[in-house]
Amino acid sequence: MTATDVSPAEPNHNLRFLEEVSAATAGVSRLEMCIQCGTCGGSCPSADDMDHTPRMLFAMIRAGMRDEALRSNTPWICVSCYHCVVRCPQDVHIADVMYTLKSMAVRAKLYRDAKAPEFSQTFVDAIENYGRSFEFGLATRHYLRHFPLRLPGMAPMGLGLLTKQRMSMTPHRIDGIDQLKAILARAKELELTS
């Protein structure tokens, strides 16, 4: 998406970044209504680990700081707790904007820590192949790659889950997997962002 109606003298090509984010968000984002009150940043259970509070991120989006916003770890640290969403006095769809930023960062390859996007991608791969999530496959691959050092400590738990039959070693494939694949393939062509 290009900023066509920004004056040519405007040095920032991303002045319309906010509109771009809004357009790619599921519901009506209402991002332009943010009054920078900080209710979201105050609500975040994981704010301490974020580069920017959600409020700051929205200010950056408004300022057209596209790369900085997409590089921020904030959307990846957001745990989708929806505290901010119900408290925001302006009814901004904050959590959904976070999802939008993640997908934009993935597309622009601007995320700095690969753990989260790769985890999501692995999860999604399983769904696209089986129609169901496959925790065992996901967990083993993910932990081996990103947290090898945590494995020894986690072994008893993992074993527990296996022996208590809380994790299955083989994935379940749905009957309509071909139908699902076709739907998802078409959906990808219909994506809201260009």
């Binding site: 900080g38 979201c40 940043g41 105050g42 509070t53 409020r55 700051m56």
Partner: peptide
Amino acid sequence: LQVEDTLAGKQ
């Protein structure tokens, strides 16, 4: 009181 101090940018 849990709050974002928006001028300091910190929760």
